[in-house]
């Protein structure tokens, strides 16, 4: 029997390079390279590990975003996914996490009804918003169990056994499938795409083309629940906090400097 897996991925700006426009309080996205959200790559890798292990696994990657997001879907296809779907429509623009998860869940339900879904993987959180909300919200919409912060996964047919990371340890949890899992970077090391698949997936005549679904493909979608108007939360301001503390530079003989350093660290009760 086919194990059907969906992996939700998001295109994000490479935050190593992102700066905030002090005047408008928004991210300067111009000229910034975009990447597939790192945690989502771990989600993708975990799905692929199941595909390596079991004969009949079908992986569908799904992303909501502008047409440029096909880039990361192709990357996921090149890594080894079987099917790629981009959810893209003007009506989706401006969606907050709730509206986004509504759209994703509607698409996932459509897939689920047609061919079933055993596991839905999401990355824990996207590096541009850091909310970690979309995965759990999808589970809520679909009325499925969710295990977040997955650091180890065992697939046991009817159920999954998971190590869920905590701040200083982990929980061992089991859940029946279908289940939603959100993944962290400790889970695995994402693979590189195979060169052959790059030639299959990218270029003018791809062997596995990316499908695009618009709002019309999701008739169950309630237009009041999506896009800017369907979003109950708003980002009012983004800013870099002013650093009020100043560093101190110690100068002089090494031994002397080390001594002063130790003393002041003791004073601050760091040592």
């Amino acid at each position: 029997m086919t194990i059907n897996i969906a992996v939700c991925i998001k295109q994000v700006p490479n935050t190593n390079q992102v700066k905030i426009d002090k005047k408008t309080g928004t991210l300067i996205r111009k000229g910034i390279k975009t990447i597939c959200n790192p945690d989502d790559k771990n989600a993708m890798e975990e799905a692929l590990k199941l595909k390596d292990k079991y004969d009949d696994v079908k992986i569908t990657v799904i992303s909501m975003g502008p047409s440029q997001a096909t880039e990361i879907i192709k990357e996921a296809l090149a890594m080894g996914a079987d099917r790629g779907i981009l959810l893209s429509d003007r009506k989706f623009a401006g969606s907050d996490t709730l509206a986004t998860s509504t759209i994703l869940a509607t698409a996932l339900r459509k897939i689920q009804e047609k061919e079933g879904l055993d596991i839905i993987f999401c990355g824990r959180q996207a590096i541009d918003g850091d909310t970690a909300q979309v995965g759990p919200q999808i589970a809520q919409h679909l009325d499925l169990p969710i295990i977040s912060y997955v650091q180890e996964l065992k697939y046991l047919g009817e159920k999954v056994q998971v190590k869920r990371a905590l701040e200083n340890g982990y929980m061992q949890i089991e859940a029946q499938i279908p289940v939603v899992l959100t993944t962290i970077s400790d889970l695995n090391k994402p693979r590189y795409p195979h060169m052959r698949r790059i030639f299959d997936v990218f270029g003018k005549n791809p062997v596995i083309p990316v499908e695009t679904w618009t709002a019309d493909d999701l008739p169950d979608l309630d237009n009041t629940q999506i896009g800017l108007n369907g979003s109950p939360t708003r980002v009012i301001k983004t800013y870099t906090p002013d650093r009020t503390f100043k560093g101190e530079i110690l100068e002089g003989e090494t031994a002397h400097v080390a001594h002063i350093l130790i003393e002041s660290l003791k004073q601050k009760q760091i040592l």
Partner: peptide
């Protein structure tokens, strides 16, 4: 394993089926 060393070799023989420039 990633088909890098066989990038320009044809798929017919198990290569990556890419081009020489790649």
């Amino acid at each position: 394993k990633l088909g890098i060393s066989s990038l320009p070799l044809p798929k017919k023989y198990g290569g990556s089926g890419g081009n020489y420039l790649a």
